[in-house]
């Protein structure tokens, strides 16, 4: 394999994961903060809030996972190799 392509792929994979983690990280922080606020305001709704929060977190997490998939493609199934 061309070392240029290999190094570019590794860098791109790292960037893909790192950049893809920023947005969901902020979003998950916001969502969790609001959920805690909601629970503090209304402790009897904790079960419902927690269920919704987990589902929402999974959705945000999947955005990072898309970045991870791209990184994996670059590392293990590189179309340019």
């Amino acid at each position: 394999m061309n070392p240029m392509i290999a190094s570019a792929s590794v860098l791109a994979a790292a960037l893909a994961i790192g950049l893809a983690a920023i947005g969901p990280g902020i979003g998950q922080g916001n969502a969790s903060g609001s959920a805690v606020e909601g629970i503090a305001r209304q402790p009897e709704a904790e079960g419902k809030i927690r269920g919704t929060l987990l589902l929402t977190l999974a959705f945000m997490e999947s955005l990072t996972i898309y970045g991870l998939v791209i990184a994996l493609v670059l590392l293990f199934a590189n179309p340019f190799a």
């Binding site: 999947s62 996972i65 898309y66 991870l68 998939v69 994996l72």
Partner: peptide
Amino acid sequence: LSLSFRLFGNILA
């Protein structure tokens, strides 16, 4: 696409 990649990516990760 998002359905399959979400599941695949999460389990593989």
